[in-house]
Every structure is written in C-alpha cells, then in structure tokens.
Design a protein around this nucleic acid. Sequence first.
DNA 1: TTTCGTTATTCTTTTATTAAAATAACACAA
DNA 2: TTGTGTTATTTTAATAAAAGAATAACGAAA
Lengths: 121, 121
Amino acid sequence: MCYTFFMEKKFRPVLTVRIFGGDKCFGPGVAELLRRVEQEKSLRAAAISMAMAYSKAWTVIRNSEAELGFKLLISTTGGKNGGGASLSPEAKRLLAAYDGYCAKLRSYAAEEFERSFSEIL
Amino acid sequence: MCYTFFMEKKFRPVLTVRIFGGDKCFGPGVAELLRRVEQEKSLRAAAISMAMAYSKAWTVIRNSEAELGFKLLISTTGGKNGGGASLSPEAKRLLAAYDGYCAKLRSYAAEEFERSFSEIL
DNA sequence: TTTCGTTATTCTTTTATTAAAATAACACAA
DNA sequence: TTGTGTTATTTTAATAAAAGAATAACGAAA
C-alpha cells in the first residue's frame, strides 16, 4: 500500500562535454553524426536519420576537421550508389575516447550530485 | 635558447553543467546572473554588467524559479533608490552548491582528459 | 504631490542560427 | 554516353533567440 501525499520533484544533472582547441572542435553534435555515419555509411543518410539538414551536417564536420587538424570522414563520390562516407581511423579513435570520457564524467557527476545537492533540492 | 619547430595544438575539455527537473531549471547563465545580483544588489545592474537585456535576465530568472519551485530573488520596488534585488537564502545555498559541484567536476574532467586523450590529441 | 530609479511585464524589432534549395562534380554501370 | 545517387559547396529562406522599446507600479524623499 502506498499513499503518495507529496511527490518531490526529481532533479538531475545534465552535462555537455565539448573539446576546445582554440575554438570549439568537438562535441555531442559531431559525435552523434559520426556514430550515424558509421551505421549508415553516408553523411546524407546520417543527417536525415537525425533530422538534420545535410548542409549543416557537412558544415559541422568541416569545421570540426579544420579545428582538429585531421579528417574525420573518408568520403567517396560517384559510382553505382553515388558514393558514401566512413570514419577515418583518427575519427574512430576520437569517438571511442570521447564516448568513454563522457561515460566516466556522467557517472562521477551523478554520484557527486547527491552529495552536493541532497540537502538543497 | 628555444627553437620551436612544431607547436602542438593544446586541446582542453569544456563542460557545461545544467540541472534539469522536468525542464532545464539551472545552468551557467542563471548562476552568473545571481553572482552579479549579489554584487550589484540589482537585477538591472547585473544584467547590464554582463551585457544582457534586462528583459532577458528577468525571463531567465522567472523561468528558473518556476521550474525550481522557489524564489531566487527577493526584490523590492520603489523607494529612494528605486528598489533592488538580493538573493533568497535558497538561491544562496543553491549557487554555492552549484559552484562547488562545477569545480569538482571540472577538476575531475581535467585529470581524466589526460588519461583519455593523451594518445590521440 | 512630484520626482526618481528601480522592478515587472509585454510587445516589437533585430540578429543569429538552422533548414532548405540549388548546382556542380564524380564515377560506376547500363 | 546517359542515368543515378551520392559528396561538396554556396546561396537563400525560415525559424528561433536575443535585444530593445514601451508602460505601469512602487515607495521613499524632497
């Protein structure tokens, strides 16, 4: 039996992790895009799958590459299926590192949130 | 004597910490605003000091308060100096907790960044 | 009771961001 | 050599965010 007289609002931390090198060069947007390119084997398909305009996806990738100093995508144009894109080895390593890094941070953030805010929120 | 043949680009993590409770209710924007209200003893002055439109500052505070469920500002209107604003006790505690929390996360993020990316970036 | 500088609130305008459209290049296969 | 569906790129349109303007209320002090 459970009488709910009063429901406390549940607060939670949300953190976004970006990497800067001079300017912003890598964040959740590029990461998600790369993940989908890996699946779809196409930047266009990746963009569509996350309801993003292709032109934006392309800009995002190009800016990130410029800031990072290496290519994220290996893309081919033309051919039977028009072409496609896949992740460069550097992109694969970066994405894996980023995902692991984010997971650690989020886990630490969740623990520490209790300690810091349990008395307050 | 120092010959610089090649300067590695310095990459660093930048993380933004937000608190959600249903919707977003607290983040770096509100926090900075509160800090400045504490200094300036006025929401208008606080907004101006950070080149933010008063109307936006006011909206930001109002939305945050609505989501949090308590008032952040104690404001008086009229009088010799027109009025002013100060932080509610809850706001003071929340801001202190938020700042401490962010500091811990950033410090952890900086350490962990080395481990996660030193081979890559 | 008039003045003053704030808070409170809404509405309009400007700016910035994002989406969409349009075009060229490409290379394979029919 | 033509058709196809992509990448690459720029330009234009639509949308969202922010700034700015405008107005009322307020209350102490002159």
